[in-house]
Design a protein around this nucleic acid. Sequence first.
DNA 1: AATGGGACCTGCGCGC
DNA 2: TGCGCGCAGGTCCCAT
Length: 271
Amino acid sequence: MPELPEVETIKRELDKIIVGKKITDIIVNNAKVIREPKKEKFIKELKNVTIKKIIRKGKLLIFELSSGKALTIHLKMTGQLIYPRQGGASPGRATRVSFKLSNGKLLDFNDTRLFGELRVVDHWQNLKFIKELGPEPFDLIIDEFKEILKNRRTKVKVLIMDQKVISGIGNLYANEALFRAKIDPGRPANTLSDKERELLFKEIKLVLRQAIKYGGSSVDDYVRVSGKKGNYTKFHQVYDRKGEDCFKCKGKIQRISLAGRGTYFCSKCQK
DNA sequence: AATGGGACCTGCGCGC
DNA sequence: TGCGCGCAGGTCCCAT
């Protein structure tokens, strides 16, 4: 499940190898992931344009194009961007759209579950998703973060995963940050003490930064552009560890469901 | 405002 | 071995 660190990892890799190249052809194997415009227009809008710049906003990737338009890519849960496809290799089963670049190499968009979203738009700033997107954790100061939690009775985990409130945090890093901050994920956000809010803010930024450093977490389908796995998985404290021993207290990691999402925590360490 | 549920999808792992 | 089922989670949308 690509979250901020995974999408940032991909962004940084693409910066080095894709920016400045021209798209010469677009091969569509499954048009379901093309959300706008329609397939034929989508292809036409991308043909023979150069990728000028890549931007990440929350979990969304934005390719600014020489035409003035933008290609936006949301990986959702199982999306991958892979480059370059090995010479002569056929597309994978999950390869939905491929971009042929000016050097003849292919950038593949793979997505097993077809939840991913590709768009070509005139102004990416006008996308509803972008307009409603909350601030990046790294752009906030502590007082702003405290303000966000202050008057909300929503469970703190659900709140920090709300992209309209703060952008980039998904299920995995929400679980990990709350464990590190020793906060029970089910606590209403407004019940956190001043100290707890400060610690949570610190741990959110820390866990995201560390995850970026290690190339993200390869659980499910996430891999880097090179196809290599992200190495942050080995630092996970609670995610997907139901019934296993807590590394800190030797209690058992529990799994509950909050807002329909798997929530992992240690009831002894997190209060 | 908060919460719960379903929808979108496929592949995996489980129990039988 | 095979079959059916529940589950995984990013986002949107609807109902209460």
